[in-house]
Amino acid sequence: SSMARSADISEIASDIITRRMSITMGDLQGLGMSQRFATAIDSNCALKNIMCNPADIYRKPNGVCNNLKNPMWGSSITAQPRFIPPHYGDGKNIGIIPRYLSVSGEPLPNPRHISNSVHNGGISPPRGCQFTVLLTFFGQFVDHDVISTP
């Protein structure tokens, strides 16, 4: 519940700031503004002062203490740094609506059509002898174990 409270505060504060300062979420996420925001919201963030035992064989189940110097890195329900700014379909870039328009403003193609086209093996689809479909599920397992982000 403390993490949910932090998330609510962050989301609502972001909304208030962008409206009051007439800036976009992209502006707020930019350098400078993001540091001001982080400083202002710091005291309302959950999970502070994590203590790790260096003698523990494993990290915590939620990923905490995987990195002893930065105990929260890679843990569940924490923000993940991005290489590029987000571009979701909702105006606030929260991600509740997937992106549906291209940079030209035209609707993006149906992902199912792309998937079917890319993976269409024709009448004689290639068969690998090195991996089975288990590789896919193992990759998904690792992915979700690392992310665990709602």
């Binding site: 505060i9 504060a13 208030i16 700031i17 009051r20 202002a40 309302n44």
Partner: peptide, 16 residues
């Protein structure tokens, strides 16, 4: 600072 004010307002709304 306007950012701090907005965060404080959000805290008030969430904790209300």
């Amino acid at each position: 600072d306007i950012v701090s004010e907005c965060v404080a307002e959000a805290v008030g709304l969430v904790d209300r």
